[in-house]
């Protein structure tokens, strides 16, 4: 298999207005920087974005918010973005906040071909409003769970450390985060990697995401990998 495309522009060329896109990353860690830039350049609008966070004002998904390309965000935490907060409070942007584990597991369910999951997260809170609940015995005690649906995303865009033309991916450190489960969940999944190596160069035992889930792959360039909270200790 050779799923290699030249660059981000080619990888996203069929992404049209009003589609649903998953974007990997936690904060600014492990985000698909090249594809985000390409989406900004292309100017597609009315997007629904599923991503744990919404970037910061001038980086990550924040860039797409600034250009008003996002109609709706589905996230667990959006606290670091003033423009986001402004658009939300003014009603320009629709936002669905969901628990982080629910977000991850709804991606997982999609990739595993399961229509729904049951989770205790959000029981008794406003997250539970309008949702079906069911009780199960857990460690001898009856406990309530929410039914949450698998995501249905037109595209998933993920960032990995290394990949090969088959689409096999290896992630690095905590830049793994949501990327593997989003990779499994998109109808079309695009992977950008720091290093694209020939088939056979990756040890099959070390692969985190098998290539079957990936439709397009390219080696990204000029990664900024911005640090959100630089914390150090004294020597």
């Amino acid at each position: 298999m050779n799923k290699t495309v030249a660059n981000a522009d080619e990888a996203i060329k069929d992404i049209q207005d009003n589609v649903t896109i998953m974007l990997g990353g936690f904060g600014l860690c492990g985000i698909p920087e090249n594809c985000i830039s390409a989406l900004v350049k292309k100017g597609v609008k009315g997007l629904t974005c599923i991503s744990n966070n919404a970037g910061v004002d001038d980086f990550g998904i924040g860039l797409m918010l600034k250009t008003r390309q996002v109609k709706k965000m589905i996230s667990s935490y959006v606290g670091e973005n003033a423009e986001f907060e402004r658009q939300l409070l003014s009603g320009e942007l629709e936002v669905e906040l969901i628990p982080q584990g629910t977000l991850a597991t709804r991606c997982l369910a999609a990739g595993y071909g399961m229509p729904a999951i049951f989770t205790p997260a959000g029981v008794g809170t406003e997250v539970a409003i309008g949702k079906e609940t069911r009780k199960f015995m857990v460690e001898g005690v009856e406990k309530e769970f929410l039914m949450e649906m698998a995501f249905d995303a037109d595209f998933a865009i993920v960032k990995a450390w290394k990949g090969d033309p088959h689409g096999n991916l290896i992630f690095r450190e905590t830049a793994r985060n949501f990327n593997p489960m989003m990779a499994m969940a998109g109808k079309i999944t695009i992977a950008e990697v720091e290093e694209l190596v020939p088939a056979g160069a990756l040890d099959p035992d070390q692969i985190h995401t098998p290539g079957i889930y990936i439709h397009r792959i390219f080696q990204g360039s000029n990664y900024e990998k911005r640090i959100e909270q630089r914390t150090v200790r004294k020597l």
Partner: peptide, 24 residues
């Protein structure tokens, strides 16, 4: 290391015996 942060997005380190995994 930009790839190595905690849930507060602060840069951190690993220890002998550390492991990484995905969000799910």
């Amino acid at each position: 290391d930009a790839d190595l942060i905690n849930a507060g997005k602060q840069t951190i380190t690993t220890l002998p015996g550390s492991s990484f995994f995905d969000s799910a």
